[in-house]
Design a protein around this nucleic acid. Sequence first.
DNA 1: CGGGATATTGAACGGCATCAACGTGCGTGG
DNA 2: CCACGCACGTTGATGCCGTTCAATATCCCG
Lengths: 262, 262
Amino acid sequence: MSGHKPQPLENAMRPAALPEQLRIACAQCNLVELCLPVGLPANDLKKLDTLVSVRKRVKRHQALFESQAPFEALYAVRLGSFKTVLTLTDGREQVTGFQMTGELLGLDGIGSGRHAVTAIALEDSEVCVIEYAQLEALAQEIPALMTQFHKVLSREIVREQGVMTLLGSMRAEERLAAFLLNLSQRFATRGFSPNQFRLRMTREEIGSYLGLKLETVSRTLSAFQEAGYLRVDRREIVLLDREGLRQLLYPERTDPANATAP
Amino acid sequence: MSGHKPQPLENAMRPAALPEQLRIACAQCNLVELCLPVGLPANDLKKLDTLVSVRKRVKRHQALFESQAPFEALYAVRLGSFKTVLTLTDGREQVTGFQMTGELLGLDGIGSGRHAVTAIALEDSEVCVIEYAQLEALAQEIPALMTQFHKVLSREIVREQGVMTLLGSMRAEERLAAFLLNLSQRFATRGFSPNQFRLRMTREEIGSYLGLKLETVSRTLSAFQEAGYLRVDRREIVLLDREGLRQLLYPERTDPANATAP
DNA sequence: CGGGATATTGAACGGCATCAACGTGCGTGG
DNA sequence: CCACGCACGTTGATGCCGTTCAATATCCCG
């Protein structure tokens, strides 16, 4: 994958060469449009490569980093997917996010120097390791990188505000509809079908993220199927009526007369 | 108030023609320990002053900025307090945070160039205006400022994760206890009593933040008073048993044996 | 191939929302 | 300055949505 081949080929041939660490280059990564370097000119990308040169593999159910552990690096998901979990002192857990390819992990550690959440791979995955000290240094040199990094941080803040709203004022149906539409959109962004995908997480993990019990997630999915919005078989989802789900989320504005500003 | 130095400008040098904008200086601001410039050396503080030179007054119930409006500046609360509100297309609202002196507003706008939330003053307030373009430029010059800014952003991410957990997995009593303890701690940080304070927000706003209805907030406060945790009179709160509230939050695990079914 | 993890579905319960009535302090205007 | 009106807060009664408890099915994964 670190070669001159124009096409990435993902899982084509990967001899069991390097177990944990692999060299790569942002400039040749097909995720460059989704990841931290969005919009950086080619020469800046080269500098970034000096920094992001190590990949790390994380097996399914394994932790990339643990809550309370010293913060040293950010991680860009290169392959696979993760969940981040916040654990209360009494053992209750809250899933605070699901991360797909191109998304960053570890932003929660910058403020205190320790990770606030635990990141766990939902499937066998790979991340690019971004030493934070080096990133700071490089951001000092490359204004565009600093700007981009601020945007990433800000967008994470906005994403979480969205989840707060979901948790604070939506009903179970709406929460799940919002969740599915969000997943759908993220798959589409990555070049996959927005209408057919495989959930990487369990009902319980979805429930934790949405503030629901796994039984409620299961029941609501069944209800959606019953209503013709989708078909569900275990973790396979086929969305049959995205617009219907969206209307669930944003209750009727059918009448153009009272259709106000967006 | 500011220290030994003769009281700066305030409205001195400015002709009274400017009711909205006032000159100030970070170096003389008593909030310097809470605000963005935490830990900056004196000479860097001076540079920051070239940037943060305008104050703005916002009257109670007035918006500092509106959702969807173009993002141009961050705001540091100098006096008073604010709430940030996210409005759904169907009109439902979610309070995503309450900001006290020294805290920053507007971080949500960096990512998209537009504000995601509306910021409304809970009482007559004043903010320092921090032009974002200038902040970026200065952060490029002053590594310590950039680092500090990243920490502020990261801490906001962590704070929101805490709220997500509260909304996703806590009961009404726990949510309110967590809220009161958080307020208490923030008042203490600002040199006020942690045991006695005045709520700046209505029951409805608290409820919106905590994902509860205002009646539930009211009832739960009454229940806390009944239980001896606090005294409440309208918006005046006297905490009588902070430790008790804390135990409510983190259920006692004194004996693992009987820690199971009731 | 076996067993634990995962998922579905049903029945009953309970916490919080909803609906409603009333009390009260505060700002506004007469 | 006082009285009015209204936003804000409290409390009660009732009902619903999601949880809890439980039983069963099924699929991976080792």
